Structures are given as C-alpha cells and as structure tokens.
Simulated scan of single mutants.
Amino acid sequence: MLNTVLLTFKLALVTSVLLLIIVMPLAWILANWQHKAKSLVLSVLALPLVLPPTVLGFYLLIAFSPQSALGQWWLALTGSTLVFSFQGLVLGSLIYSLPFALQPLYSGFVQLDKRYLEVASSLGFSRLEGLYRIVLPLCKAPIIVAFGLSFAHTVGEFGVVLMIGGNIPGETQVLSIALYEQVEALEYERAHVMSLGLLVFSFIVLALLYRFNGGADPSSGTRNIDPERKR
C-alpha cells in the first residue's frame, strides 16, 4: 500500500514539475499570439478535458507500442518498452494533465497588464529579465494553481494509466488502479479507506487553491496579477 501511495505521488510530482517547465513558455506564447488558427490550437490542447480517458489511453497505447516509431526509438535508446513502464505513465500524464496546467497560466498571462513589460524595457531590462523579474512574480498565483491542479489531477488518473501502464505493483500500480483492483476483489473495506483518502486529499487541495486564489475559480488563476489590486 505504501509503495502504491509513494508511486502515485512520485508520478504526480514529476508530471507537475515537467508540466510547469513545458507549459509556462507555451502559455506565454499563446497569450501573446494573434492568429486565426489560435482557437484551433487551443482546442487541440484542451482535448483531454472532454475526451474520454480510455480513448486517449488507447491512442497513446498505439503510439507507445514497440511497433510504433516512438516505441522503437525508446526501445533502442533504453532497452525497455515505453508501454507498461513508469516513463510511459509520465509521458501519458503530461498529455492528459496538460490542460489543467495550461488554462490557469494562459488566463493569467492574458490578463497581465503588458505595460509593466513596456516600463521594464524602457528601464533597460532585457526581454528575458522582464519575464523573470516582472511576469513570474506577478503571475505567482496562476503558477501555483497550475501546479496544484496538475498534481491533483494526476493523482486521480485512471483510464489513461490503465491503458498504457496496466497494473504492475511497484512500477505502474497507482492508487486509482489499486482501488479498482480492491473493488474487483470485493475488498470493500480497503476500497473505502483508499476512496476516503483520495476524497479528503482532493478536497484539501481544492480548498487550499480556492483560499489562495481569494475564492475565485482556481482554473482562472487571475488573482494578484496586477499589483494595484492589492491596495
């Protein structure tokens, strides 16, 4: 049980950190990109929000299989398959949880007053310095919300994990899969304990995010993006 909990939180932590690294520049580019294809790109990136997890998991299973180009490349590089591995779970989780990191960051960057960057530029700040010293501090709330939502969503994964990871103890068996296994085995007492733990965890995460975001929807991630609002 402890190994399953540790594996679940390890997957959620690795996924959330990688998502912040990947999604922050992506969200910034999209927030400042004006093109008629923008809505199409945003729709593609948001697909995991509405796509049944088993559908996404099925296509990821095909993409990760040893017969695919990606699967063959990974097999040649590491000597192991991408499917039914922790690395495969991480890659699948990055795709599945991407909208939960992208949405608050994108909303925060869109609503950021760009005049601060103009002032920073007039004071001799480089573009990179402006992003690091102006944008990131002002968008602290969206960044924390993006991490929190990604973490919680990854902990609750089931369909995608089951399709590409299976149920290998110590390797791919996360809490949601272990819970399903307990229900199938009619071990309802242990299933109750797991379910209650996940329920309490999800509630605490959301309560903290709502509190941190001043009661606003955490997915908006728009609190405190303008210093004037603190006054």
Rank of each mutant, 00 (worst) to 15 (best):
M1E: 02
M1G: 04
L2W: 10
L2S: 06
N3Q: 11
V5E: 02
L7W: 00
K10R: 12
L11H: 01
L13E: 00
V14Q: 05
T15N: 05
L18F: 03
L18C: 08
L19A: 03
L20N: 08
M24S: 07
M24R: 12
L26G: 02
L26N: 04
W28L: 10
A31F: 02
N32D: 04
N32R: 15
Q34R: 15
K36E: 07
A37W: 15
K38I: 02
V41L: 15
V41M: 11
L42Q: 13
S43Q: 14
V44M: 15
L45W: 07
L47N: 08
P48E: 04
L49Y: 01
L51I: 05
L51F: 03
T54C: 10
L56K: 12
L56I: 06
L56D: 05
L56N: 06
L60T: 07
I62H: 14
I62P: 10
P66M: 09
A69L: 15
A69E: 14
A69V: 14
L70N: 12
Q72W: 13
W74N: 08
L77H: 15
L77E: 14
T78D: 14
S80N: 15
L82E: 05
F84C: 07
S85E: 07
Q87D: 11
V90L: 00
L91N: 08
L94M: 11
I95C: 10
I95D: 08
F100G: 02
F100Q: 09
A101M: 10
Q103N: 14
Q111I: 09
L112Y: 09
K114L: 07
R115N: 13
E118K: 14
V119S: 09
A120E: 11
S121Y: 11
S122C: 13
L128Y: 07
G130P: 13
R133M: 10
L136T: 01
L138T: 01
L138E: 00
K140G: 00
P142F: 00
I143V: 10
I144G: 03
A146L: 01
F147R: 02
S150C: 03
F151Y: 05
A152E: 02
E157G: 11
G159I: 03
G159E: 10
V161Q: 12
L162C: 07
M163H: 13
I164T: 02
G165N: 12
G166S: 06
G166P: 11
G166D: 04
I168C: 04
I168M: 13
P169R: 11
P169K: 12
Q173N: 09
L175C: 05
S176F: 02
L179S: 03
Y180G: 01
Y180P: 09
V183Q: 12
V183F: 05
V183G: 03
E184V: 09
A185P: 12
E187G: 10
E187I: 06
E189N: 14
E189Y: 08
R190A: 00
A191D: 05
S195R: 14
S195D: 02
L196N: 05
L198C: 05
V200F: 08
F201W: 06
S202N: 12
S202G: 09
L206V: 02
L206Y: 04
L209K: 09
L209E: 06
R211A: 04
G214P: 13
P218F: 01
P218I: 00
S220E: 13
R223W: 01
N224T: 00
P227D: 08
E228V: 14
R229K: 15
K230W: 13
R231Y: 06
